[in-house]
Write a protein that binds this DNA or RNA. Sequence first.
DNA 1: ACCAATTCGGACCGGATTGGTACGCAATAG
DNA 2: CTATTGCGTACCAATCCGGTCCGAATTGGT
Lengths: 158, 158
Amino acid sequence: MIILSKLADYGVIVATHLAAHPDRQATAAAIAASTRLPRATAAKLLKAMAHAGLVTATRGPAGGYRLARRPAAISIAEVVAAIDGDIGLTQCSVHEADCERTTYCPTRPHWAAINRAVGAALSAISLAEMIGPLAFAPAASFTEPARDARIFMDEPPR
Amino acid sequence: MIILSKLADYGVIVATHLAAHPDRQATAAAIAASTRLPRATAAKLLKAMAHAGLVTATRGPAGGYRLARRPAAISIAEVVAAIDGDIGLTQCSVHEADCERTTYCPTRPHWAAINRAVGAALSAISLAEMIGPLAFAPAASFTEPARDARIFMDEPPR
DNA sequence: ACCAATTCGGACCGGATTGGTACGCAATAG
DNA sequence: CTATTGCGTACCAATCCGGTCCGAATTGGT
């Protein structure tokens, strides 16, 4: 199974590209060319990110997109959430109301915990870190998972 | 965005139900009734798990399903993988060949690391733990994920 | 001050994947 | 032998994803 949608994946690529040139103002077409993505798709992604406040857009000639904050202040989780919506493992993590099993399903509280762990993993890495070489723990400690805990937690979110 | 597919979610519910009664031999119909799932769907899930070797099936009258191992020896990751296939964040994590961006895309190594983290989170919890109360650290340190953000679990859109 | 080029913004549509179902076959216990 | 149960295949429906189109806003030139 693939966790991230293609669009979310592309969105991170676009955001990373913007982070690599934080000073320049780039048009949607230029970004599409640089990332080898279809123009319309890149435009759609940028639109979503602008809506979420991650990038600022200026119209008219000499317009274009630019990151709204410093690359180090934008996490992967935010980019993904801007495109695909909030992150949740299961249906009931996102729409609690839709799950009529709430009362007797014993798995729900556990999902919430795993949920936070996954979210933390995506929140812990910023666009700035995405540009350079591996900047955070290479997860060597995860090869043997060892229950009980603190799964990702060797990486305090800054 | 929802990470687990509905079927994978259901699969965990079914597996958890089996783990709650490890001695009993349960028919697909009985499991479906207990979990309030459609019979055909439950059967499909059980078949997939049997194929992956997580449950054993015996046919004929008085047949049914049973966990192949002790509940503590089956991880959530295995159940999910049995139904949805291997876990990967992005397309290129699963089919490396399909990504022609391999050479210049700077984000790929990072994905692999996050990938391991997610996999570890799902591998770290077993069916046995899924039955009882929260058995591992609820990741309380991440409840405030950083900066403005508040990415998860609040639920604004729509 | 107007016009026009350029750029973003929202609505729409086709297609693929997923979720769910139905039917016929194989195996086993009574 | 027969009834019950799982096994496999094939099929249908629906949601969601990915992509394209056309309209709205803004700046720069004239």
